[in-house]
């Protein structure tokens, strides 16, 4: 496999796969090439991941300072918003929004906690703390 020297991605795991891309050249032919994405494509993808990581870090700080429940952190880690989390866990959106606060989170039953844990694919113990 070709050496991948383009250092736009900050995560080491990124940019290891080649894809098929189409081109239209000056002779009027459509060409297919299997290759890595160019720099502009990497910049825009890295931008999205920067944004997600910022949100994740912000949520982690909030949880550690006691302003939000761990669900807020896990939600940002899995790139979800309250609506999609509600769909994944089978809980109404207004309840999800309430459970993002530390007080209502403490009063949650085992059954509801299990629903969230299944949605995030982790155990209840992992759900109660942040990394």
């Amino acid at each position: 496999m070709e050496e991948n020297n383009n250092k736009v991605y900050k995560d080491e795991r990124y940019g290891k796969y080649r894809e098929m891309l189409y081109y239209y050249n000056e002779d009027g032919n459509f060409e297919k090439k299997v290759e890595f994405h160019g720099e502009p494509d990497r910049v825009i993808l890295q931008q999205a991941w920067d944004f997600f990581n910022e949100r994740k870090e912000e949520a982690r700080q909030k949880v550690l300072s006691g302003k939000a429940s761990p669900i807020a952190y896990h939600m940002e880690k899995d790139l979800l918003d309250p609506m999609n989390l509600g769909m994944a866990a089978g809980i109404k959106i207004w309840n999800v929004k309430r459970h993002l606060k530390p007080g209502p989170f403490k009063r949650l039953s085992e059954k509801t906690l299990q629903k969230y844990a299944d949605a995030f694919n982790i155990t209840i113990e992992e759900l109660k703390k942040v990394e």
């Binding site: 189409y22 081109y23 494509d41 825009i44 999205a48």
Partner: peptide, 12 residues
């Protein structure tokens, strides 16, 4: 740009 270029569109 992401929807147009990445995510396996073959470009553009």
């Amino acid at each position: 740009l992401r929807m147009a270029e990445d995510f396996g569109t073959g470009g553009a």
